[in-house]
Design a binder for these strands. Structure first.
Lengths: 339, 339
DNA sequence: CTGTTAGCGCGTTCAG
DNA sequence: CTGAACGCGCTAACAG
């Protein structure tokens, strides 16, 4: 039957050369746009290659080139909230085609990380992007990895490594400044798990902005967990303590979602009575919120692009080290609409 | 120290052999556990390899082996809702280590798909998994792809291809049967975009279960969009038309989330007055819902494992063709708790 | 302009 | 038990 040739050996350059009646070297030069090939010859070779659907074997090419045109993306972010945008940014930066990305999920497990690391190095990736699951510094892979490494989202604890991280302090500042711009003066902050650097950093940023405006935050930062349930509970506690609150900074969009629900149920109007802002600009949370939620976007795609770009520089031999932050931006929606 | 040469060329088998004072062949045999090597020699080679952190070059190995130990996962699912669980299932099935996965995002774009396809084939992947963004059949890559292909989530329109898809008809049936088990008899169905096969299939399943129980659905299937807003609007319309509804099947967890909110705001108690069930068991939606949402899990990870397993069979030469469905399961939570 | 030769890193014969 | 030689697919350097 037709499937007899199931294992059709892929077409090689040799096949093309043979059918075009030239040597492999000539065929190679013709297809790679090198000089010193007669136009006619080039065209003929090109034609045959197309007809045979010839795909050059990158592996063989890699042997001599010394580079495989492949990078590894080793993530610990199970759900892909950070790693997918980063992957997309990286794909963009690498320019479709010349570089491909191996994605491995280490699931917060050092053993698995080690394992994938070996697998990736064995496949001779040209470089590695390591994505953490929180913004707290993580242990460096060390200087003995034979390829350049860039850490994304979670920085390496070794300042000599290259890291690209979101700027949560700026994000906090931006959030508070946005509320201040609207004329809000009695601002509370309901955040998530206080063991997360992201929670602390955002709180720091909020504090800076308020201090700069000569204001004090209404009540302490109410830390809890990264959940809607906590958002509901946290804002209730805040309102009970200080009914005069006119804005709430929420540690994440999920928390904001809970805050919005609780406010609505208490009959507090958003944004007229209280303005609400979240962090992450996470579509699934934003989409259903009432009113539509203003949020600080951490620009993960940019982070991916930057990580990829820095990795490229390092692959090319540049020194590239230290932590680079990615500036966030406020996406304004109804929950802080002026008026 | 050694790190002076930043671009430390990866250690090759030759290096190991030299330092161990043996030939490459001996080193190879020693490290690969082949017979006919003196135990002492083996140990010495092993030691040197460890000391040098030698990682065998899979690329070179692939040359002779004819297989690269690499598969491509080409997805159109931007957000990773399907492709990430599938990736994880695939990683599991491949057994950590021997096989790595190239993940590419084609973003619903045929050009990009073609492009990534070439890149993957050029890297000589042993096989491909193609993940669609909806369960509607997609055009086959055709028989000319030189490696085995398995389609996941979206089946190929060519029955000779191998596909692994969620069983949405069963899912609909399971959902309705679950409600029937609870004693609910007046069941409405609020679903999403009717152009999606998933919406139609789930509706079909619901209809089958009701018919089998000798019941009629309360009102038509209310199609709309895959959004919370539509969930709120849809259930309101349903209730206005038929106040006696005692259960609602929701086309997705997002819709269910909207339905729950609308019911609560109307003073309808869940599950006492109306039971609610969704589809997908999507954690971000489930987490914040009040009460906790019962949902039909489509078992994406299983889908990934099955896709990987079938791909393996095909790589090994098996015939493997046709569409395989993955059975869903109901995850019961408070929104349908009995009592 | 084109063909020949060498070699990349590794596994695999096949002689020693 | 060991080592030299071959080949995988391709490109670079050199001859013609």
């Amino acid at each position: 039957m037709a499937t007899s040739d199931t294992r059709t050996r892929p077409v090689t350059l040799r096949d093309v050369a043979q059918l075009a009646g030239v040597s492999v070297a000539t065929a190679s030069k013709a297809l790679n746009g090198k000089a010193d090939v007669h136009p006619d010859t080039r065209r003929r070779v090109q034609e045959v290659a197309d007809r045979l659907a010839f795909t050059p074997n990158s592996l063989a090419r890699a042997i001599t080139a010394g580079r495989t045109g492949t990078v590894g993306l080793l993530t610990h972010d199970l759900e892909g909230r950070f790693s997918l945008p980063i992957l997309m940014g990286a794909e963009d930066a690498f320019g479709a085609g010349s570089t491909s990305v191996f994605l491995c999920d280490a699931r917060e497990d050092a053993i698995r990380e080690q394992h994938h690391l070996r697998a990736l190095l064995g496949r001779r990736v040209d470089g590695l992007i390591i994505v953490g699951s929180r913004t707290d510094p993580r242990s460096s892979l060390g200087p003995d990895v034979p390829v350049p490494v860039v850490y994304a989202y979670a920085p390496s604890d070794d300042p000599d490594d290259a890291s690209v991280v979101p700027d949560n302090v700026s994000a906090g500042r931006l959030a508070a400044e946005h509320l201040l711009t609207l004329g809000r003066r009695r601002i509370a902050h309901v955040s998530g798990d206080p063991t997360y650097a992201a929670a602390q950093d955002r709180a720091t940023g909020v504090g800076q902005a308020l201090a700069a405006a000569g204001l004090e935050q209404v009540g302490p930062v109410r830390f809890g967990s990264w959940s809607e349930a906590w958002g509901r509970a946290g804002v209730s506690a805040a309102l009970d303590a200080d009914p005069g609150i006119d804005a709430v900074v929420c540690g994440s969009d999920m928390i904001a979602r809970g805050v919005l629900d609780a406010l609505r149920e208490r009959g507090v109007r958003v944004p007229q009575d209280v303005a609400v802002i979240g962090f992450d600009n996470w579509e699934p949370m934003i989409a259903g919120s009432r009113p539509a939620l203003t949020s600080v976007d951490m620009n993960f795609e940019t982070m991916g692009r930057r990580a990829a770009t820095r990795l490229f520089s390092r692959i090319a031999g540049a020194a590239e080290r230290g932590v680079e932050t990615v500036a966030p931006r406020v996406v304004v929606r109804a929950s802080t609409a002026s008026g």
